[in-house]
Design a protein around this nucleic acid. Sequence first.
DNA 1: ACATTCATGTAATTAGTTACATGATTCG
DNA 2: CGAATCATGTAACTAATTACATGAATGT
Lengths: 208, 208
Amino acid sequence: MDHSILAVLSFRPSSGYDIKAEFEHKAASLYWGMSYGSIYPKLKKLENEGYIYALESDSTGRKKTLFELTAKGWEELEGWLASPPAYPVQRDELFMRIAAWHDDMDSTTLIGHLQKRKTESKDILQFIKEWPRNGTSYINVVGMLAIKYSETILEAEIKWVDETVRLLTENKLPASQDPNGLGEKIRNRRKKALQLEAEDEDPERLDV
Amino acid sequence: MDHSILAVLSFRPSSGYDIKAEFEHKAASLYWGMSYGSIYPKLKKLENEGYIYALESDSTGRKKTLFELTAKGWEELEGWLASPPAYPVQRDELFMRIAAWHDDMDSTTLIGHLQKRKTESKDILQFIKEWPRNGTSYINVVGMLAIKYSETILEAEIKWVDETVRLLTENKLPASQDPNGLGEKIRNRRKKALQLEAEDEDPERLDV
DNA sequence: ACATTCATGTAATTAGTTACATGATTCG
DNA sequence: CGAATCATGTAACTAATTACATGAATGT
């Protein structure tokens, strides 16, 4: 059961290609994504199970198969909309890197990561801000709330990046917390591991 | 290659069980997650490829296999840390629902979703705020920045939920944008689909 | 003694992407 | 007329979870 497809079809009857475009460039792209390799088989399955059906194409230009929701499809969608959403799992490679960063590493690399993130987030923010103003998109009353959310979060993120870059460049980082001297231990483990390798690579040196 | 495992091992030599705990209760849980079914095979693979090796257990109590990074493992980790992180894909079921919400639906259900989200986010925020203060966790200088980020975002999110619930209950929603009367079309498509089904279910009625 | 937690793993399943294949239509 | 885009699909592959199985050590 893929409810995100039913959700897209609820706006208007769409082809697989349309759905992909919706996930790529439009509103849905902010919170979901899907490739052709997923979309077409899912459409087949949803059709077989009676949630959607194929409309006749209106013969204008290109031929494509538009899918429309059946009564069963609308009911399934609305049941899903009413069911409690799972808490989103954040999987952010930037923060995994930040968390594992260690003192021996160059902080200019980290600043580079942060600035890249800022650029990307600013682009998305601009897209969101312009999108309700282009005068052609359909955004219902509740949809406006989601836009406001993305604006809020992205602005907070960008502000955090600026502040963090400032702290890193001015070397005014907050105090670390290390009650067991783990930072020292980590540096030693790393040093030892890297030294052992150097010896393995050039074992003769000791004897010369 | 699973760098999140190397990242966890960089803090301290750990068993598969330890790694799972790290992803479950600790810092890493905010930005990553993994099940046993992934962890143990990955550890085997990383060992075979020479990124990690098994330490002898220190025979105190339970026997477990701790893994430590090799020189190759440290180098791989640091290369990954320096490589540009991908922009995170937000997959948020709450916002997929909000985006597909339609006017015929009961807004109290939506308010319920929002309040559930608020509770969950508040719990995480509390965890984050307490965690540097428990006096036992290791958090390095850069790690503090990631904590600050999560605080910032979660606080912004909670504020947005409060504001949104207020708008919904007071019925002061922002104006929708619907240049092509799509909202009306959606309501009609839905009505028609559901009526057709009602007729199918009870076709005799027309003849009586 | 019994339940819980610690600890490691595998098999089946699910879900997804990537790369490829194919061809029609439209635009410049 | 050739390039770009529209349009649909499949096969191979990758990545992950879930459910199951097993058993030892610890806490009550």
